[in-house]
Amino acid sequence: MLKKYLKVFKISFQLVFQYRFNVVLQMFFGFLPLIALISLWHSLFTDNNTINGYSIEMMVTYLIVAKVIDTILMPDMHWQVNEDIKTGELSKYLTKPISYFSYWFFNSLGNRIVRILLSIIPISIVIILNMGYFLIPNNFNLLFFIISLIGTMILYYMIYYLVSLFSFYFVEITSFFFTLEIVLELLSGSLIPLDFLPNALRNLINFLPFGYLVHFNINIYLNRLEFSEILYGFTLQFFWSLFLYVLIKILWKKGLNKYESVGA
């Protein structure tokens, strides 16, 4: 009798393990393009001590920290929101005493913790492989860096939640999600530090929130910002989040009207 239940327990345990194992593998594979990027910069630095104000140590650290920020903080709930809106699953949430916005916010908060745990191994491997090149910030910068990550998390969430609300209006939005991801990779500075981009593009980025997702944080980490610049960055993270939140409120209200008039 007991044996039967033990078996059930074992199977469910294996299922969890299998699932986790898959996620771990996926994390590992996600780090492969980083190896290529680091190799590229290593070969560029063989003839130069500094490139555009960056030393090889700064660049390697930049790329690794950027990858860590994206791995841990980039939201993925937009797929599910899109699914909910398309299939009508959304109605289920509307009757609950918790807002859809906060539901996903807290959901992804939990998700972040899982991702931190899962990405520890691949991150450590990359850092160990680049041991002589990975810089550690001083306490003061580390503190501000961590605060800036909270800002990034909120700002990232606002951007992706806003975009996922487009699902109210467009049927084929999912391929746009992929496109958005590669565009953000460039504009947030996770592909290459923003100071490398052509001037015209940099001027444009100054009017957009994306530079405060990755580039700003790593500049704190690398001790490239004055205290006043850090404060200025925090302020912008805050106001961009607020601005996007207002847009979300408007889009949600309009989208919901459309959704209900179709569904009901």
Binding site: I192, F196, P198
Partner: peptide, 17 residues
């Protein structure tokens, strides 16, 4: 879009090197 981004990436490097 992918091509534009990739080309911007490499152009940014070739602007300096």
């Amino acid at each position: 879009v992918w091509f534009v981004i990739t080309i911007i990436f490499f152009n940014s490097i070739f602007n300096i090197l």
